[in-house]
Design a protein around this nucleic acid. Structure first.
Lengths: 165, 165
DNA sequence: GGCTGGCTTCGAGTGCACTCGAAGTCGTAG
DNA sequence: CTACGACTTCGAGTGCACTCGAAGCCAGCC
């Protein structure tokens, strides 16, 4: 229950949640379906979680979770003693924000998104725009990464060849 | 010839070099072939280039090119007046380094790679290991980005749905 | 000859995203 | 009752990768 001192990469953690959701019925459903369930979160969790458990679950350190809250990136309820209590929705928000960060969205943009969401439903168009724009940049980054991978592969396969440096 | 004040993303610049190499015979050859030619560089370039032209060609600012040289990331010859003169090989090194950076390799690692290369051919095993290790991390990053994209797409397609935040 | 514009070096500054540490509080186990 | 460990806040520190600015040099044009 208490946090181990490991700090696995957030993507690894989040992916394992996705995969456990996906594996629930033995088959690997299309990613969309896994995602639907991942956003809804697995059922075998306690009603609320402490910061250490969320850290464990997401791969984000407790320090960083507090930092995220400080800058308004996520909001979290407290118990009587003032400790953070993450319910299912809060955990979902943390995971979504983490995916946004992993996809390369700057914190300032995530913050803007969250502020829009807090302003109410009438900002949904703006939020959608923001996501679409971000989507484009992710796709472009993906393309670049693939090309870079090809370059690295080229270098690997021609190793021992004549190409200097 | 002199640098415009635009600063296009390096990937855009480098990709355009790849693509012009690929388009040379009208067909789009497999990426590997384009890369072979890209590493060999297009023929219609002057024998040597100034820093502004390299900046233009790679999308890296002159400031950053100097910075890269300062920290030992690339080495560049000088003309009689002490100005940097990039020959074909130097440009190739800059582009390779840029692809490594774009693929997420930290500067310290690129530096290590370059140092190994400068030590001579007996380090080629170590360099290959380094590239293979890096390749794995690129692939993993690619997977994460794709998943993150799926999450963003999920959010986009379910917009107006019930999922909070 | 003098001006201009791009080049040079070097040190210092910036921006982002954490990351840490100190000092204090609280709830449970012994 | 006391000790312990996990939690709290807040400010300050870190690491990375640029990014900038000042001061000076030098080739080519008027």
């Amino acid at each position: 229950m208490t946090s181990t001192l490991e700090h696995p990469h957030p993507a690894t953690r989040l992916r394992s949640v996705l995969e456990s959701a996906a594996a629930e019925d033995g088959t690997l459903p299309p990613l969309d379906q896994a995602l639907v369930r991942a956003m809804a979160l697995p059922e075998d969790l306690p009603e609320t979680l402490g910061i250490a458990e969320v850290a464990e679950l997401t791969g984000i350190t407790a320090h960083t979770l507090r930092y995220y809250e400080r800058i308004g990136l996520v909001t979290v309820a407290r118990d009587a003693a003032g400790r953070r209590t993450y319910d299912r929705a809060a955990l979902g928000r943390v995971m979504f924000v983490t995916w946004l960060r992993l996809s390369g969205m700057p914190i300032a943009t995530v913050t803007r998104y969250v502020e829009l969401a807090q302003e109410g439903p009438h900002t949904s168009d703006a939020r959608l725009d923001l996501l679409l724009e971000h989507r484009a940049s992710v796709v472009s980054h993906l393309r670049d990464l693939q090309t870079a991978l090809a370059v690295v592969d080229y270098k690997i396969t021609t190793y021992g060849g004549s190409c200097g440096s």
